[in-house]
Design a protein around this nucleic acid. Structure first.
Length: 125
DNA sequence: ATTCTCACA
DNA sequence: TGTGAGCA
């Protein structure tokens, strides 16, 4: 098995309890579960129905936090995340990551103030 | 002790 | 989104 495959495996393994994700992302359990309900993250479940997250889930959650701070609505983020359907390891997942990273740092992504200035409104308000 | 689901003075 | 109830 290649090292890349091994690393990918580590990043996608569902092993973190919600409490760890809460401290790692500074999000409330309520918010984390809500984003899941919105289809932004898909944590695993233990036999007892407790959610278990992967390091990738944490990255996604942090990206969501950043996107929201920049004025995007949950709907906006959802559309950017899965244009079609979600694939675990194929290049679809890579595309999603690139989209996240791109939107986070590029000034192509208008922030809340710019949107207001141009009369835009977050599609959730 | 923690997390889960559901509901709302 | 918060918060509390009643479980597992």
């Amino acid at each position: 098995m290649s090292v890349m495959a091994a690393e990918e495996d580590l990043r996608t393994r569902h092993i973190l309890p919600i409490s760890t994700v809460m401290s790692l992302t500074a999000l409330t359990a309520r918010q984390i579960r809500y984003y899941e309900a919105q289809g932004l993250v898909q944590p695993g479940r233990t036999a007892g129905q407790h959610r278990v997250y992967s390091l990738r889930d944490v990255d996604v959650l942090l990206a969501i936090k950043s996107q929201l701070a920049d004025g995007f609505s949950i709907a906006d983020i959802r559309n950017l995340m899965h244009p079609r359907h979600q694939a675990e390891n194929s290049d679809e997942a890579v595309r999603q990551m690139l989209r996240d990273e791109l939107l986070q740092q590029s000034r192509f992504a208008p922030d809340a103030e710019m949107r207001q200035g141009f009369g835009f409104r977050r599609s959730g308000e």
